[in-house]
């Protein structure tokens, strides 16, 4: 088994969308169900956390800047750690996450080399 990190990438449209409280409730339910499913099946190692939207970047010349000035594309909104036998299996798990269904992407990365 190998560990994979899921980085949830949210598109600017997704971040601008103002859901109604009812919609928020539905989205939350999807995530709770998915995480519970992961805990039961054993592939969820750590639900992880969300990252606040504010983002700074430190480059090689040690300059600090607002990340938005570098790339205005998707931002990483949070992460989770999962366990899977292969990249293919990890991808299948990622497909089942609520992220793609709400317009975001999941970057699946092997932890370690």
């Amino acid at each position: 088994m190998a560990r994979y990190m899921f980085l949830y990438r949210e598109s600017p449209e997704q971040l601008q969308h103002q859901p109604s409280p009812e919609e928020m409730q539905q989205v939350m339910q999807l995530w709770t169900n998915w995480m519970q499913q992961g805990a039961q099946a054993g592939w969820l190692i750590d639900g992880g956390d969300a990252l606040k939207p504010e983002s700074r970047s430190v480059d090689a010349s040690l300059e600090v800047s607002d990340t938005a000035t570098i790339e205005a594309k998707e931002v990483v909104g949070g992460y989770s750690l999962i366990e899977a036998a292969s990249l293919e299996e990890a991808i299948e798990i990622a497909k089942g996450s609520p992220m793609p269904h709400s317009g975001g992407s999941v970057e699946v990365r092997l932890v370690g080399h």
């Binding site: 928020m24 989205v27 939350m28 995530w31 639900g47 956390d49 969300a50 909104g77 949070g78 609520p98």
Partner: peptide, 16 residues
């Protein structure tokens, strides 16, 4: 309040 609820929704994906 809307901002706060959206923040909650984003954070609580990972656990309520």
């Amino acid at each position: 309040i809307q901002t706060a609820l959206v923040e909650a929704m984003r954070s609580w994906r990972h656990g309520v």
